[in-house]
Design a protein around this nucleic acid. Structure first.
Lengths: 148, 148
DNA sequence: CAGTATATGTCAGAATGCTGACATGGAGCA
DNA sequence: TGCTCCATGTCAGCATTCTGACATATACTG
């Protein structure tokens, strides 16, 4: 009976390693986003809007992995800065389709470049092929039902 | 020039995929830990103490990826429940070496088994070999300097 | 020895995120 | 049509975590 039932050595735990990488990524992203007065969730919101204009608050929340209440507050703060814009009335149902303003797109572009550099640097120890394989393996276990 | 400078399609971003897996893991862990009145950071604290008795508050914080202020509060709450114990005075310097009580060990055992099951289930779509490779690839880019 | 640098524990305040709750708009069904 | 169910936006309260600050203990250095 080799298979342990407890977590065992943390360094051998896939969950812990994922957490390590996630923490490293988040710290590095926070650092480069600070000059733009963005946090990771704020950046995520902009990036999602950039790729999928018209997303509602609830949809943004799901894809950014926060509750819709948190996203609501976050979105309002960004709106005060004039980065995204929402109509006053819902064109249908209650969902308010959100889009980036010119300023929002400009800010997103800067942020996206910075984040891309961080990712590239963080995963640079891995070869192109390893990175591809890593993404495949990770995606393999993500519920693809979350796809937009 | 194929190499984009911005993040590009999120689904193709390693960072986003890591975040997806991390979120899924965290949600699943929170769920199974709730009956034990534990959160992920609280569990992490106990697991670290189980594997490395005598860690100080600051060391726990670093390995659990929170600030030492947060860990301090968290640790005190756990102490009120009698799970870990710290001496009143530091045997050397200011660091207070923390250890699990009997209750703490018992709680940790239950939690660890539950978390192990979650990890196992979450990564079950991947073969044993793929999991091994995944861990290797991820660990390859974690600063091993964080090792205990 | 005195002065400096580093690490630790801790306090205080602000920001962030979550849970619970409620009202509203649409879809499905009797 | 009327009823139920679900998704959305939003308000309120609570918990958690962070940043900034300060005191203390040790190590290092001139």
């Amino acid at each position: 009976m080799e298979q342990a039932e407890t977590v065992g050595d943390l360094e051998l735990s896939l969950g812990y390693v994922v957490k390590q990488v996630h923490a490293a990524l988040r710290t590095a992203m926070d650092e480069v986003l600070r000059p733009l007065e963005l946090t990771v969730p704020r950046y995520a919101c902009l990036e999602l809007l950039g790729q999928h204009p018209g997303l509602s608050n609830s949809e943004l929340a799901r894809h950014a992995f926060v509750t819709r209440q948190s996203m609501n507050l976050l979105l309002r703060r960004l709106q005060e800065r004039g980065l995204p814009a929402r109509p006053d009335q819902a064109p249908r149902g209650r969902a308010l389709p959100t889009e980036l303003t010119e300023d929002g797109q400009a800010t997103l572009r800067k942020a996206s470049i910075a984040v891309r550099a961080v990712e590239k640097q963080l995963f640079s120890p891995l070869s192109e092929e390893q990175q591809h394989r890593l993404r495949e393996d990770l995606a393999a276990r993500v519920d693809s039902s979350i796809a937009i």
